[in-house]
Design a protein around this nucleic acid. Structure first.
Lengths: 120, 120
DNA sequence: TGTCGTGGTTTCCAAAAAGGTACTGTGTTT
DNA sequence: AAACACAGTACCTTTTTGGAAACCACGACA
């Protein structure tokens, strides 16, 4: 019963209300690519073209869209170098780094499930 | 670079392929209600009508749909009592319980983000 | 002058997820 | 005989996501 001590009040995020912290977390990283993007950025700062290579099965549009949202949510930092051709580097913010332990556990759990759980 | 040691091979789940454990995890609990359902069931076994009360802003249809998928994925156990009116109890399986630490972290992180992170 | 590379944006369309409403089955109670 | 309780199912619509293809800006370079 987590309600009792810490949450009767709703949480607000981008004009939506959530009852539970889990829903907030999923709203931030639950998209099809966001969690993976954060995971990869946790390993190293990457240029847009690096991300395109890593996520070769998505489109530029999706990548920029997800990155913009992560940036607005304060999880990712976008650094533009005033050059031609353009150079843009993406990295995690302090805030973004705090979610790493969760991503790590999700990665392990999912991998383990795929190996053993699905045929249990 | 998590690729190097543990994953070059793809993981398969319900006829889809995933490169990363994170994506597997999200496929299983990334739905709009699934993680919360698991979270509540981790606290206590619940009847369908209990869940309806907890998730009063969704429909019976969505609940059954999500529960069926969680059941198929081996995370939730469905026990039917042969009575009239019907009685059906939902609880976590062993497998389902293993995800609890992740849910707990997501709950804390999300709650913390909602309080402090969004105005940082 | 024309082409290249990077990091996008725009428009349009398809697929997937979520939601609404009505209907069902069946013992028990009134 | 009618209504109720519980746990659904069926059918259809709406909303949200994801994706394909084309276009853009701009300096460098041949």
């Amino acid at each position: 019963m987590q309600q009792n001590q810490a949450a009767a009040e709703l949480m607000t995020l981008r004009d939506r209300e959530y009852k539970c912290g889990i829903d907030v977390t999923l709203a931030l990283v639950g998209g099809k690519w966001k969690a993976s993007i954060l995971w990869h950025l946790a390993q190293e700062t990457m240029r847009f073209s690096d991300l395109q290579r890593q996520f070769s099965d998505t489109t530029r549009k999706m990548l920029t869209q997800q990155l913009r949202e992560l940036e607005m949510d304060g999880l990712v930092h976008r650094k533009v170098y005033p050059q031609v051709p353009p150079k843009v580097e993406y990295s995690l913010t302090e805030q973004g780094r705090t979610i790493f332990p969760i991503l790590e556990m999700m990665c392990d759990w999912g991998r383990n499930y795929a190996q053993t759980g699905s045929q249990a």
